[in-house]
Write a protein that binds this DNA or RNA. Structure first.
Lengths: 359, 359
DNA sequence: AGAATATTTGTAAGCGCTTACATTTATCTC
DNA sequence: GAGATAAATGTAAGCGCTTACAAATATTCT
């Protein structure tokens, strides 16, 4: 508190010519504190290398001048930005929001900042976003899912940029991933549905190209069906981008087929909510006429009526662990390939037995 | 295509010592193209200043080497980052997602990149995020709502950092804002509700402190009531952070009061959806026993049953216009204070007349 | 054609910070 | 307490880019 008031206002005018409006620089702080810029820098970046006495003096000047390091200069000199880029397929719904929030919170614990970009589920846009984030100096990246051109991985490899894949997990030693096994998760749900006796089922999936999560989920349903002696090729699969509206349209299409499926698997909760809504709009009761399932267990799944049977994904855990993996990678530790996270089936009202009147 | 292959691989090794892994620099490009770094820089930043011939040669080398400018260096030298910081209260639900997406898209049109941060509706966190974004070199900011400490505005002013306020609009010449008038919007909805004959109403609002949008919305309801000779002080206002769960709890509380309100205004759709769900859980029918309204018209409002009566906010327009305003500001144009955007009432099934059996 | 002007390109000085290395100062060791 | 060792601080060289300004080249005018 009782600081050297007099010196506190001089340095700014000295080093920066542009009158009062310019930000104070390291120089200014150094001059005001009577030390070298190196010492100030050390106070900020590795305080343990500086005597408590000088450190306190310097830091008080820092506060007094309202000094904040210039990001660009720091990045340039240190070749490090403490920034992690995250590229998610979409920000328009809640699918990734919760996980990302946790990711960010955990990054903050490690002194890292998150930069988000969204790819709109388009591989070309994702590649562009990766470039953008790297150009902005991202030290590492969070990517969703495995599917992307080999050239992208090669580029990352060649630059030596660490990355972590989330929302998916499989036996691929080439990448480090934090996620769950989409196949296993969906398989558990499919088994549950078939146990209810359903024989005519259909799938509303996101486009499977470039999306390993979507593919795994579809495959799980087909495999489960095959195991029960059903013909997988009889199962109708509609591919459509994730949106409530698209879920509704797909449902329309499915419900006008005959025999009408008695259960519809949706690639995620957003599609499922659309399907659910449309079913009621066209006078079908869920689950009395048709069962519907989702994937992700976002908030809305509990809210819709009937509540949605879905696969619960531990979003927050996933985000947090992804951040930890990145922090470890950045420290040079060879982050071990973790185990897949566990998902659980949330059986709610939208899943029921096969309708009696069914063909 | 038929480029000078031989020179293309040398420069990298020349200027950057760290073997092959380092990124090519402007130097490398300049050397390979046989021009000065200034010319390369101009090709990238103001191509019209360079002959078509040299420009093409340089750009082809850029492509060949896979050169990408270093963000830090550029920021440092140009004192400009082409980065806009956006601080939104939350990423956990869809309220801001759509507007932000449009904001980003429009920024991209102007060659600007968006950096998001979220404040969790906490003023202290917002202030911190502002600092962080500015330290990262944000050239301008997007802020939500007017309410924040004067010191924050002073700081922005003093730094000369342009900012635009969104999601709110009022007669305040000190700030430039792109948004709608929350009071007017909610007033229209309230008038509509009272026209249905409701006399006992209640409000579930976000905490009003530090949130001018929430305050305006509450005030609109109270004023509308007063205009009809109702006693505003009889109107119960529950304040609780925006979340489905909180909306549900608040509804519990309101529904156990007597006389029970016949209509509940919610500060946004998220609270309303919670309220709606809880109503049905405790055996009340909406709108036969109680009407419920929301605000924002996010996707979920159309999906829930009964569908939610709410105020439609032109999120995408708002995001787009905010981006345009910022681009204008950055060009030095004195972006005119635009007119407030129009909102519309979406009357859906959740609003009905006063129940007959009502007290 | 030659001077005057406009256009294109080059030169080089930083932008604000980090960090290897050199120097100074404090702390041990016997 | 002298010499050796460890800790704290200072010196200064960049990091990769932009941009005044200078120099070179092309264009126009009389």
């Amino acid at each position: 508190m009782a600081q050297t008031r007099k010196t506190s206002l001089q340095p700014r005018a000295r080093a920066s010519q542009k009158a009062g409006s310019a930000q104070p620089t390291l120089q200014d702080v150094a001059a005001a504190a009577g030390v070298s810029t190196a010492t100030v820098s050390r106070c900020l970046n590795s305080p343990e290398q500086v005597t408590a006495r000088t450190r306190e003096r310097v830091l008080s000047v820092v506060r007094e001048l309202g000094y904040a390091p210039n990001f660009g200069a720091r990045a340039l000199a240190a070749k490090r930005t403490n920034t992690i880029g995250a590229i998610i397929p979409t920000m328009e719904n809640a699918i990734f929001a919760r996980g990302l929030q946790a990711f960010q919170e955990e990054l903050a614990e490690h002194g890292l900042t998150m930069l988000v970009a969204s790819s709109s589920y388009r591989p070309d846009l994702e590649e562009e976003q990766i470039r953008t984030l790297l150009a902005r100096g991202a030290d590492a990246l969070l990517l969703i899912g495995f599917d992307r051109p080999a050239s992208v991985y090669a580029h990352l490899e060649q630059r030596g940029t660490p990355y972590v894949i989330a929302w998916s997990q499989k036996e691929d030693p080439r990448h480090i991933a934090v996620g769950f096994d989409n196949y296993t998760a969906m398989r558990a749900l499919a088994d549950r549905v078939f146990n209810h006796g359903h024989k005519d089922v259909a799938i509303i999936s996101a486009p499977q190209a470039d999306n390993d999560r979507a593919r795994d989920r579809v495959r799980a349903v087909l495999d489960s069906a095959a195991d029960r002696g059903l013909e997988p090729q009889d199962i109708r699969v509609i591919e459509t981008p994730y949106s409530i509206e698209n879920g509704a349209s797909a449902m329309d299409e499915l419900m006008s087929a005959k025999p009408r499926p008695t259960a519809v698997f949706c690639g995620n909760d957003v599609l499922a909510v659309g399907a659910l809504g449309r079913a009621s709009e066209i006078g079908l009761s869920v689950p009395d006429d048709v069962s519907v399932t989702g994937f992700d267990d976002i908030e809305i799944a509990r809210i819709v009526r009937p509540a949605l049977t879905t696969v619960h994904v531990p979003h927050r855990d996933m985000g947090r662990q992804a951040a930890q993996a990145i922090a470890a990678l950045l420290k040079g530790e060879t982050a071990a390939h973790g185990l897949p996270l566990a998902t659980t089936i949330m059986e709610r009202a939208s899943l029921g037995p096969v309708p009696k009147a069914s063909s």
